[in-house]
């Protein structure tokens, strides 16, 4: 959401697309790191529950500030490619979808490289699995957490910026997107990138089908219903055999 809005503001000043995309993602990454530095790492006797509530607080504060600064309207953002629509075998779709798909694969590929091939990626995984042990090995867990906040902020902002031409930039567009992302990862299985991709595809297709066959006002419902059904029948997700964090 923030990514889309900042991108919109920058594009208003006639900055070139690539530059504004980069600046908006980077600035959100910095904001995320600052949020961790100022709020999360300073909290005394933090429990998981209190941190969740705190991030909820942070998110509504950001949302409220954006609402005041840029108004409540949905802002249109121009498509990245010069031609707005492409037709393949008679099916016409917005060219922006190509960009979204391209970026998705790029991000997944880069994340894969990052976690499997670089030392820092492995450090990050280690400190998520067992912070105490990681600290014993000389890892600055706090620093790692801050960087992972920055990375997730960067990717989130990038996603918001590239989806903006399709869904417009608006102050409350983030919640639904985030929830659908969560639904996709539940369907695919937590901690499983490929599963999440397939889960996202399943949910996206179900959404379009329900919009076509039932009613477009219920299209957002499809994602959540599928998620609940998967939680009910197969809580570990469709493609995961690993033990999930559950009772």
């Amino acid at each position: 959401m923030l990514g889309g809005i900042i991108e919109f503001c920058l594009l208003k000043y006639n900055l070139p697309l690539g530059v504004s995309l980069l600046i908006s993602s980077l600035s959100v990454a910095v904001i995320a790191a600052l949020i961790h530095k100022i709020f999360i790492s300073q909290t005394k006797n933090a429990t998981e529950l209190s941190l969740i509530i705190m991030t909820v607080g942070i998110s509504i504060t950001i949302k409220g500030s954006v609402m005041l600064l840029a108004d409540k309207d949905a802002h249109p953002v121009d498509s990245f490619l010069p031609i707005a629509h492409i037709s393949v075998f008679g099916a016409i779709f917005a060219s922006q979808y190509l960009i979204v798909i391209l970026f998705t694969f790029l991000i997944i590929f880069l994340l894969y490289l990052f976690f499997k091939k670089t030392l820092f990626g492995k450090i990050m995984q280690a400190s998520s699995m067992n912070p105490l042990a990681a600290r014993l090995f000389g890892v600055d867990v706090n620093m790692v957490q801050m960087l992972s906040f920055a990375i997730s902020g960067f990717i989130g902002a990038l996603a918001g910026a590239i989806i903006a031409p399709i869904s417009f930039a608006q102050y409350d567009s983030g919640v639904l997107l985030g929830l659908k992302g969560f639904a996709a990862s539940v369907v695919g299985g937590f901690g499983n990138n490929n599963g999440a991709l397939i889960g996202g595809l399943i949910i996206g297709v179900a959404e379009s089908l329900s919009a076509g066959y039932i009613s477009s006002s219920y299209k957002d419902l499809a994602a959540f219903l599928i998620m609940l059904i998967v939680l009910f029948i197969r809580p570990q997700g469709l493609f995961s055999s690993k033990d999930v964090e559950r009772v």
């Binding site: 998981e48 529950l49 969740i52 909820v56 919640v175 639904l176 929830l179 969560f182 639904a183 539940v186 937590f190 006002s217 219920y218 957002d220 419902l221 959540f224 219903l225 998620m227 609940l228 939680l231 009910f232 809580p235 964090e245 559950r246 009772v247």
Partner: peptide
């Protein structure tokens, strides 16, 4: 199903339930 989830998964799942009801 949702109460079997823990911490942030529970938060997101209950958030989704609220959204479902609001959409309907």
């Amino acid at each position: 199903p949702t109460l079997k989830l823990k911490s942030h998964y529970l938060a997101m799942a209950t958030l989704a339930i609220g959204e479902i009801i609001n959409i309907v």
